[in-house]
């Protein structure tokens, strides 16, 4: 990364209110993902340069947390909940549906860039089980058929 790019990203982080304190590593990663969509190799370099730590250290922390993505995300984000309550109501079925219908596994993006898919442990709305989240919206009491309909809606939108 060139010095100019480092300075540019430093200014960007400053503008967003970061000071360069080590404790800001996780908030920085969250900020970067929010503004750039995912944690790219350039992002890791920029953050490491800003905090004065090694890139390995940034990866060490980032890879620990499920929130951070290292792959460019799809246009639509699909989360299937596999928490206890959702499992009992058929959450695995929903994950299989994604696998069979979109041909992607947990953490992958479809080749056409339309969908990415992640299995999550609990979305915190267990009374609505089984739950699927698409683009931040919760779909409650899902089954395979309903899920197919939801995916179709987003594919055309």
């Amino acid at each position: 990364m060139t010095v100019e790019r480092l300075i540019q990203s430093r200014d960007e982080f400053w503008a967003a209110g970061f000071t360069g304190d080590l404790a800001e590593l996780i908030p920085l990663l969250q900020y970067y993902q929010e503004t750039h969509g995912y944690i790219s190799p350039e992002g890791v370099e920029a953050i490491a340069g800003f905090l004065g730590i090694s890139e390995a250290r940034v990866y060490t922390v980032a890879s620990f947390y499920a929130q951070f993505r290292f792959q460019k995300p799809g246009k639509n984000h699909v989360f299937v909940c596999l928490g206890t309550a959702c499992h009992v109501q058929g959450g695995v079925d929903l994950a299989n549906e994604i696998h069979e219908h979109l041909h992607i596994r947990n953490g992958e993006t479809t080749p056409d860039g339309q969908f990415d898919f992640k299995e999550v442990a609990c979305l915190g709305c267990c009374a609505q089980a089984a739950v699927v989240e698409v683009n931040g919206k919760i779909y409650a009491k899902m089954n395979r058929e309903k899920l197919r309909k939801v995916l179709k809606e987003h594919q055309h939108a």
Partner: peptide, 8 residues
């Protein structure tokens, strides 16, 4: 406030 990043 510190926002968690998805780790049980």
């Amino acid at each position: 406030i510190h926002s968690g990043a998805g780790a049980y």
